[in-house]
């Protein structure tokens, strides 16, 4: 059942004249968690935002090279079609404050003007909230605005919102950096659980987190992909000196 979900080849990204990503090559397989790790400012967010083409929303941003989502050329697709197939969870929980919890979960369908019968929507909401391990906590207040939820719950609501679209890959950009330790471990557990059903690309600068949840790790430094391989291997015998220095806390 293993197959390549995301393939990045000779990929570079720019903000105006400054090159942020330099010739990245990467492959992620289905039902694995791949971590992008590296010091702050090295380009992790940029790379992940290139995958669903959010990068190009910023004026002056451009890219070269190729990315494929299950053999489909990402940069040959309509962004709005692509983004529906790719889920994204942001650094700061960002549920829509003007929508109820229920509507937040199906926001992707609502925004895209896709209509379903009511019971099917109920189904999607329940399934997605279950998937995000939030169902039990909110099932009685589905039609309230989500603003009363804790930060960790809000983040799981955002994960549910992404899961509702049945994404082929889920992008998580430091999803726990704005959360307390307890919520963080809840999200980490959730990621491990989700692995059964969805492929994930996780950005973190927390080495321990990468070790806990990921199967593969890519170490990025100054826009370059320094090393990429199975997490346990890289963490025990890093091939590159820079990876070793990063893992042992010499910088970052």
């Amino acid at each position: 059942m293993e197959s390549t979900v995301l393939k990045v080849s000779d990929f570079s990204a720019y903000f105006g004249d400054s090159q942020i990503l330099k010739n990245i090559n990467l492959e992620t397989d289905s039902n694995f968690v791949t971590t992008l790790m590296g010091p702050s400012g090295c380009g992790k967010t940029t790379l992940i935002r290139c995958v669903n083409r959010m990068h190009e929303l910023i004026p002056g941003a451009r890219v070269t090279g190729k990315m494929y989502l299950k053999n489909d050329d990402i940069y040959g697709m309509e962004p709005i079609v692509l983004r529906r197939k790719i889920g994204m969870v942001f650094q700061k929980p960002n549920p829509f404050p003007m929508m109820s919890i229920y509507d937040n979960v199906i926001a992707g369908y609502k925004l895209n003007g896709i209509r379903f019968p009511r019971d099917e929507l109920d189904n999607i909401v329940e399934r997605s909230l279950m998937g995000a391990a939030l169902w039990d906590e909110v099932k009685d207040s589905l039609h309230r605005k989500g603003t009363f939820l804790s930060g960790g719950q809000q983040q799981r609501l955002c994960i549910a919102r992404a899961l509702a679209m049945n994404p082929e890959i889920l992008l998580l950009d430091e999803p726990t950096s704005a959360l307390d330790p307890k919520s963080t471990s809840a999200i980490e557990e959730l990621i491990v659980e989700l692995k059964k059903s969805v492929t994930m690309l996780l950005v973190t600068h927390n080495i321990a987190q990468a070790a806990r949840v990921s199967d593969y790790t890519a170490f990025i430094y100054l826009g370059e992909l320094v090393e990429f391989g199975p997490t346990d291997k890289m963490f025990t015998v890093p091939k590159d000196k820079r990876t070793e220095e990063y893992l042992t806390g010499k910088f970052g």
Partner: peptide
Amino acid sequence: PGDLKEAAFSLGAT
């Protein structure tokens, strides 16, 4: 807030 707009874009909204 920009992150709300981004959330909507990431779900495939025009």
